[in-house]
Amino acid sequence: MSNTLNLTLQVWRQPSTNAAGTFETYQAHNISDDASFLEMLDIVNERLIEDGKIPIEFPHDCREGICGTCGVMINGRAHGHEKGTATCQLHMRKFNDGDTIVIEPWRAAAFPVVRDLVVDRSPLDRIIEVGGFITAPTGTAQDANQQPIPKEVADSAMDAAACIGCGACVAACPNSAAQLFTSAKVWHLNSLPQGQAERYKRAESMVETMEEFFGSCTNHGECSEACPKEISLDFIAYMNKDYIKSKVKNRRMSSQI
């Protein structure tokens, strides 16, 4: 049954990208443990407004763990301590009365803070636009059942495609690498028969664009642990392989089995 919690929050406040930021401390009293983490912030914000103080900006939208908008560092972990859970699906019953919660925005050179806890993740879109697609202009498609795809392949592609683009992988990575995000998309498309025509070009351009913005993977595995969709490190290996192949392989022969 529902209990209430009294919490101390330390929240990163930063008025704008170029301004200096700092932690501010807030008391969050009488928070129902049925509230979600973001609802807890809603309550804090309502109280701040009542007191005439500027509310905390935090990223959120669908609040059902699928849009990928939300995401903050909670006590040193991306999306908090609950495995496979986005911030919006984290509930206060996972915290204890009297806890101090430190909330910080994602940090990466490619993710500048917009305000408070909100960061700009548009480099992730830059990675998609150079190769995260299958070129199939509208109207060109053949019948969907023309080409059978083994269930294992479709399932694996789906595992990779489950990525919500929240950026937790980058935030959790000590190197701010975006390997998990990029490899999830590379594998989603490269594993499918439809994606074969552009396979090596895709791996090549996505990896090289990724490296314009992000750090290098040192295989810590933090990304996968932080990922709300628990996307596997395996995809990083597959991407690495396809990338090297993209440089080595004679692509003129790439449609030969």
Partner: peptide
Amino acid sequence: DQMTAQGVPF
């Protein structure tokens, strides 16, 4: 057809 061609993993 279109979405399958684009790689939607139905």
